[in-house]
Amino acid sequence: MTSRSASLAAASGPETAPASAPQGPSPAAGTTPKPDRPLLDTCRMFARNCPAMTGLVLLATIVLATLFGPGLYGVDPFSMVDMPFAPPGPDCLLGTDYLGRDILAGVIVGGRATLAVGASAAAITVLIGVVIGTFAGYFGGWVDAVLMKVTEFFQILPTLLFAMVLVTIFSSSLVTIAIAIGAVSWTATARLTRAEFIRIRDLEYVKAARTAGARDFYLMFRVILPAALPPIIVAAALAVGISILFEAGLSFLGLGDPNTMSWGMIIGQNRDYLLNAWWTVTFPGIAIFLTVLSISLIGDGVNDALNPRLRRR
């Protein structure tokens, strides 16, 4: 924390240092002034990062294409438009699948399920992880011991296999899939949050807040959590990418919602014919790849922008 505020001050030094001088007695002699606009600094840092901006533009394009593409393209992904396995050509830009359905229409519509499940599963992952990590890291002692045992338990179950079991036993609906992915992949976020809490909970400003009479919940979620957020945000971005890969894997194995088109499902249904019709599996895969790539680029960019050591440049 100290190194972060120090370097922030160093970055914005010329503006803030004189301004803080006449403000009377500062809390402690050696402390540096608080940075004015950390969020703005972070955004500026991010905007200067070329790969990260590329990722952002790419992701925005993909999201817009899945939202408005079906309306513009106007081909039903479930209806047969041509011969089965028609190669890419002027009629069907990306060819047709084993039932003669348009691959391009499938790729455009299939992004909706994948992105929706990916985002909501990541939200569940982060929510469970942050709550468990917060309680374990804040209270320590037996609470920590019990919660970490639970985390360890979930860590020894291979994630995809466990999610497969959950989806098989309950239903293959989008909601179940999102919950199953979230329920199996929160452990890393929990450990990260716990480590951050252990680092922060004994810092001076937390002690000050405690002395001033702040209750446990206020300390946990209003005092410590904001300071622990930077690495959690990066982990959240990573979780979106992982959840999308997860959803794609489950749909590929035939565990997706059978009534909803998704990228993994197109690949899974056509994989037996891939040696005769490469386009059926190649294009939906490229869509998954580019989506996860754009999210990873954004995650890396956010990581760099939040990293005080890099900000000095």
């Binding site: 990418g241 794609a248 894997g249 690949i267 895969g285 790849f289 580019l290 996860v292 790539l293 990873s296």
Partner: peptide, 14 residues
């Protein structure tokens, strides 16, 4: 970056 982003089943099919 590419290795993380490509779904493993798709890499296999390719």
């Amino acid at each position: 970056l590419a290795g993380f982003s490509a779904p493993v089943f798709w890499t296999g099919l390719m």
